[in-house]
Amino acid sequence: MRRGTNLPRVGDFNQMVVLDQVRRAPDGTSRSELAASTGLSLQAVSNIVARLIALGYVVEGERRAEGRGKPRTMLYLEPQGAYALGVHIDPVVVTSVLVDLDGRTVEKVVEPTPAGPEAVAGAVAAAAAGMLDRAGIERSAVLGLGVAAPGPVDLAAGTVIRPPLLDGWEEVPVRDLLAAATGFDVVLDKDVSAAMVAELWRGNRMLRGTSLFFYTGFGVAVAVAHDGELLAGSSRNAGEVGHLMVDNDGPRCDCGQRGCIGVSAAPATLVAEAVAGGVLPAGTPA
């Protein structure tokens, strides 16, 4: 679980830590409790809470008295205080969502993946505009757009490198492309990393110890977290395990080897094996 720091010039990080603690307390929390859980001074917490209230992200609730101490003013997340857009780019479908500050889905659009990066950017921009219009939410209330794309990625440059089964996507500047198409600030990450962050965001069960997320779709990847922190490595590409060999006599991979876990666990391979073994009827689509 993230803790704040009382060092100077880390205000944005501390604000994120405090907001996350408020979000994880559906029954409310107080300034003194936030100071204890984040490691920040009570004065620092009070200043941050004042900013969060001014932004509309946090609201004050009832005063709660427990024991002999001074009654505590409870703090709650305001889910409608801000919104964010999210996009998952997949070889078959592009999924776009509009979520509130608590991560709950407000609107969702799933459509076949258009051919080429520019067409995908146009589809995402149209989906975003449509979702905001249907939900009646102003663009100014949207914090930004998060993009989950197949790895590997170059996060510094905002590009995808050579995503599997996406022709014409070599070294594509996805971050800048979608920022230009939508007009929003864009954050790019690998799909498996984004999935792990979502698990950490939506629950408390993975905030202690080490957790492993195994992602399988048109590719295979792994994400690891420890004490609520994603361990993505210096390049943010840790977990690219698709070309680990698991079967010397397995199916041929596009890298030239046999039995890579990515191709061995691919849906087409598993369906073909099931058909060959009589588990599925001949002609079953992958």
Rank of each mutant, 00 (worst) to 15 (best):
G183P: 06
G183V: 02
G183Y: 07
F184A: 04
F184C: 03
F184K: 02
F184Y: 09
F184W: 05
D185W: 12
D185F: 12
D185K: 09
V186A: 02
V187W: 11
V187T: 06
V187K: 10
V187R: 12
L188M: 00
L188K: 00
L188Q: 00
L188P: 01
D189S: 11
D189H: 08
D189G: 09
D189Q: 08
K190W: 09
K190P: 08
K190F: 10
K190V: 08
K190T: 07
K190A: 10
D191N: 05
D191T: 01
D191R: 03
D191S: 03
D191F: 04
V192T: 05
V192C: 05
V192S: 05
V192I: 05
V192P: 05
V192R: 02
V192F: 05
S193H: 14
S193L: 13
S193W: 14
A194Q: 06
A194E: 04
A195R: 07
M196C: 08
M196V: 03
M196W: 05
M196E: 07
M196K: 03
M196F: 08
M196S: 05
V197C: 12
V197Y: 13
V197D: 12
A198Q: 15
A198F: 14
A198L: 15
A198S: 15
A198C: 15
E199D: 13
E199M: 08
E199R: 11
L200K: 13
L200M: 12
L200I: 11
W201Q: 12
W201L: 13
R202Y: 08
R202A: 08
R202H: 10
G203C: 07
G203P: 07
G203D: 07
N204R: 13
N204C: 07
N204F: 10
N204L: 14
N204A: 11
N204Y: 07
N204E: 12
R205K: 06
R205L: 07
M206R: 04
M206A: 03
M206D: 03
L207T: 09
L207A: 11
L207D: 12
R208P: 00
R208C: 00
R208T: 00
R208I: 00
G209C: 00
G209A: 01
T210C: 11
S211V: 01
S211W: 04
S211L: 02
S211T: 03
L212F: 15
L212P: 09
F213W: 12
F213Y: 13
F213M: 14
F213V: 08
F213E: 09
F213K: 10
F213T: 09
F213P: 10
F213I: 07
F213R: 10
F214I: 02
F214R: 02
F214M: 07
Y215A: 03
Y215C: 01
Y215M: 02
T216V: 05
T216W: 06
T216Y: 08
T216K: 07
T216M: 08
G217Q: 06
G217F: 08
G217I: 02
F218W: 14
G219P: 05
G219Y: 07
G219V: 01
G219R: 05
G219Q: 06
G219I: 01
V220G: 15
V220F: 15
V220I: 14
V220M: 15
V220C: 15
A221I: 10
A221L: 11
A221K: 13
A221E: 11
A221F: 12
A221H: 13
A221N: 14
A221Q: 14
